[in-house]
Amino acid sequence: MAKRSFTDPQITLQHGAGGEATRQLVEGLFAPAFANDTLAAMEDAAALNADGLRLAFTTDTFVVHPRNFPGGCLGSLAVHGTLNDLAVSGADPIGLSAAFVLEAGLDTSELRAQTEAMAEAARKAGVPIVTGDTKVVEHGSVDGLYINTSGVGVIRPSADLGPNRVRPGDAVLVSGPIGDHGVTILISRGEIELEADLKTDSRSVLPLTSALLDQLGSGVRWMRDATRGGVATVLNELVGGRPFGVVLEEQEIPVRDPVRGCCELLGLDPLHVANEGQFVAIVAGDRADEAIRALRNVEGGSDARIIGVVTDEHPARVVGRTSFGAKRVIDVLVGDPLPRIC
């Protein structure tokens, strides 16, 4: 993909939505300014070499609104998000940081509840929060509470992950039903009068990625958590500018009925909806069944599914095949998913 310099005169919300606009900002403004070999890999976590020890290092800032939603909250999300970036890099996390931007006037009880949710999520994953920072800004200059977390992990010696390891014939798998988080948040905002029996999928995927790496070793080629922009966006990022593409079998993609229903009503594609506890992995084609068995043996992995294959038929393209065999291009999302009117 051609790298263009960033020319938009202003930052809009679309630049933060994780789709094409975000990509243009990152590749056109940040990447050229900070240019170095480690950054150039553009993975969720950077791979650093410390005297022969391979470390994964990542950071993420969480600004979700509302801060509490069915199945989770800002605090638990902030821990899971960073753990997951390390997990899909093939790393065992060893420590997290927590930095807070607080709006003057925030209730202490809320801050305490969010902090406890962070502590609980970190405890459950067995990863300590080892450093932090606090800033308080004037009332009105931020929306209550923003949390940044960073994380460091040791990359497993057996993990050999990267887009360059992906080849035609490999299988594409997803760890479970997609779209739960994005649709839950959309409904929690209260702007749409919809009710659905849904909660966020926010969780640490570490037990799943570990099981996969334990079983397949270098048979796992590439992993990515499918957060903003959804499965469609991470797969497009994988194939962009590369000599291979991906074909997804649309009826194999696991989507819960409430998510399907909401997406149909609002004109959204579940493939573009955010997840906070699901990842996409590319594994060697002849070991796909083994991978699914390994995931299904872990708690929370019972819905893992092979959803497609890597192909050299249409390089750089993600294509979906419908139940009656017709094909369509699955593109990245431009900006935020906006509901259609009719």
Binding site: V334, G335, L338
Partner: peptide, 21 residues
């Protein structure tokens, strides 16, 4: 306005651009 309108360009940009301003 409805969601679809947010990215519709006028000669001075879209409603999302106006929001950013």
């Amino acid at each position: 306005a409805f969601g679809d309108m947010m990215r519709v360009p006028g000669t001075t940009g879209t409603p999302l651009d106006a929001k950013a301003r």
